[in-house]
Structures are given as structure tokens and as C-alpha cells.
Nucleic acid binder design. Structure first.
Lengths: 196, 196
DNA sequence: CTATGATGTGTGCAGTGCTCACATTAACCG
DNA sequence: CGGTTAATGTGAGCACTGCACACATCATAG
């Protein structure tokens, strides 16, 4: 019933497609995201989206790029200017939380081909990478920033993925947060010979 | 064993399907893995595989389970009895290497729904989890084994995924190994700015 | 040596991505 | 204004997919 404007041309089909895609992703997961379903939901013929997206890949990449931006926002919101490992842990929690709250989106962001994908997408991930590097530089000024930021991102990312797959499950948000914090603490405390 | 000759019954279609699925996965990635393609490659009608796998999900889960076992083997081969972080790093390298060498398989193992999946699959991942815990206990006797093994697995897993997505790329195997080792070192050396 | 259940076949349906020719219309230019 | 044009949306159609169904074949138990 949403043909509010019964005109031939939609007006802003591109945005409508992205919105529909997001909804389908939340509702039915990755599998439910078909161009045709998107078109149906946007109240438009099956082939109309092709005027705005070269193919399914392009649509997915656009959704993913949106996801990156949102994720970046959540991280920044978790702690504006982290100074110590606890602050970092808060950001880690936000990262994992994002993954668990939007599982299908997150998978799409990090699972699909990606490399040859849109530059929009590449730029968005580069931004995150840069952000992590900045964080690490601030909190661990004495470390090799390149290696350590790789390590930190990997750690948080892996934590997110393991939760997603149900390898680790955290019933309540608070349990999840505590588990993440515990992992961070354990990692920082870890030394083979000299604890503390 | 298999009377591969033109007999009506295949002999060991289940195994043939798994082999075909592995091949298709290596050749065309996740997308190329269709039940029909598997059937074609096994030289059998399109619906024959349904006698051995309830649906596509089941086939994929079986392939994934195989992958888990192989991964476990590679890890064990990388270092039989790790005692210090360097040994651990060798295992980390093997983990990431496995992901990079079999990208499609790895994605299938950790990306698809999984939870409600076959118990065969659940058992295989539980085995890996247990293995990591054992490792960690050996190398870091003073740490909280639960939290630290979570952290270690997450770290290595994230490293693997970031490489897979081309977020981090390592042209040569040696470069990859060195990057992984550097990340491990950086993480262990990391101490916060030491607010004294 | 036959009955039976496990295994493989063929047909068919609904859904998908994508291409192509065509319809509609907004926007630009005389 | 009015007409041309390019952007946008439509519909039919192809090749493919997963899966369900009825049927064919055959190894083997009784």
C-alpha cells in the first residue's frame, strides 16, 4: 500500500532499495537478501534496481559501506578519547555488540568478496583501520603501532565472529560485555614467565 | 570398493559428493557450491545427493566438519607440544595459513548458520576449542584459562579473517608468517602507558 | 528366487540474477 | 511554449538453483 505517490518514477529508488535491503537483512538474514525481494519491498518491478546498482554485489557493497559507517559511529560513541586499556575494552565491547546486534549486516560487511568491490567500501574499511591505529598509538605509545593495531583489530574482530557463530554465546548484553572485558584483561596480563 | 563403472548404483555417492563439493569450493568459491553442480561432477542425477544429505545445508555442514578436522591436523602438525609464545606463534601461523590456503572452505566453516547444524559439526568445533584451551594452559599456567583461551582463539581467528578479506594482505607465505609473529609479539609486549 | 528397501532418475514448481526491448516521464534546449 | 533526449521503470525471457514428487533399478535378506 505504500505507493504513496502513484507516479511512474519512484523519486529516490536508490535510497528505498538500501532501506529495503537493510530490513530484509535483519528479518531473514543474508539469504533473504535478493534483488527481487528488495524490488518488491520498494514497490517496484524486479529489474528496476538495476538502474541504480550494477548487480547484486553492488547493492550488497553499498549496504556494507553503510554498515561500516554505523560501526564507526558506535565505536566513537563508546568512548570518545580512550586513554587506558579499560577504555579500549569499552570500545571492544561496542564492536562485539554491534556484530551481535546486527549479525547479518556484520557478516555481509566482512564475509563477502569485498576486495574488488566498490571503492566506497574500501574507503570505509580503511577508515576503521586508521581509527584503530590511532587508538592503539594513544594507549600503547611504546609499541610498534602497525603490528599492535593489527593485533588489536584481529582480536576484537575474532571475538565478534566467534560470538556470531555461537562458538561463544553470551545470553545477556552484560554477560557479553563482561566476557569481552575478561578476555582483554587476560590478554594484557598474559606473560609466560612473569605475571604482573 | 567403488565399482565406478556404469552401474546404476554409484557405490559411495556420499563420499563422492563430499569430494566434488571440496573441489567446487576451491575452484569457484562458496557461490559455486550448488547441489546440482555437485551431482553433475559426481556423474549422477541432480536429485541423487538428496539420498545422502537432507538439504544443501547438510552437505555444507559435512564439508565444514571435514574442514575442522583438517585444520586441527594442521595445527597439531605445526608444533606438537608448544611450550612458549614462539611455539604458540607457529600454531597461529598455521591457523592463518589454513584460512588463506582454503579461503572458501574456511568461510564455510565459520560463516554459515552452524548453530542448529549437525552435531558432527558442533563436536568438531568443540574439539578445537578444547585444543586451544589445552595449549593456553600449557603456555600460560598462571592465567585464567577460560578467558585467555577465548582471547587467543579470537585473536588468531580474527587475524585469519582479516587476511581473508584482504584487509591485511600478505603476498608471500613468509611475509604472512612474519606478520603474524609480529602481531603476537606486539600483543605480548603490550603494556599500557603505565600510569604510575 | 522372489520381495523389499535403499539408492538413483526425470519431471516439475517456485524462486533467483541478469539481459534486452520497450514504456514513461523529467529535464533541457530551440 | 513545444519537442527531443536521456534517465528511469516495466515485462518477457533465459539459465540456473533448491527441493518435492512419482517412478526405475538393483542388492540382498528371507
Amino acid at each position: 500500500m505504500s505507493q504513496a505517490n502513484a507516479s511512474y518514477h519512484h523519486g529516490d529508488l536508490r535510497a528505498a532499495c538500501l532501506r529495503a535491503a537493510r530490513e530484509l537483512l535483519e528479518e531473514n538474514g543474508d539469504a533473504g537478501l535478493s534483488l527481487r525481494a528488495v524490488a518488491r519491498r520498494a514497490g517496484v518491478s524486479a529489474t528496476a534496481p538495476y538502474r541504480h546498482f550494477a548487480d547484486r554485489e553492488a547493492l550488497v557493497s553499498a549496504v556494507a559501506a553503510e554498515g561500516y559507517r554505523e560501526l564507526a559511529g558506535q565505536l566513537a560513541a563508546a568512548h570518545p578519547a580512550p586513554r587506558d586499556p579499560d577504555d579500549l575494552a569499552a570500545i571492544a565491547v561496542a564492536y562485539v555488540r554491534f556484530a551481535v546486534d546486527h549479525p547479518a549486516l556484520f557478516k555481509v560487511m566482512f564475509t563477502e568478496p569485498c576486495d574488488p568491490g566498490s571503492e566506497e567500501r574500501a574507503a570505509a574499511t580503511a577508515a576503521i583501520s586508521e581509527y584503530v591505529k590511532t587508538l592503539v598509538r594513544g594507549v600503547f605509545p611504546d609499541a610498534d603501532p602497525e603490528a599492535l593495531s593489527t593485533a588489536v583489530w584481529a582480536f576484537v574482530h575474532g571475538l565478534a565472529f566467534l560470538h556470531l557463530d555461537g562458538k561463544l554465546d553470551a545470553a545477556t548484553p552484560e554477560a557479553l560485555a563482561e566476557r569481552v572485558r575478561a578476555a582483554v584483561r587476560a590478554l594484557l596480563a598474559a606473560s609466560p614467565a612473569v605475571p604482573r
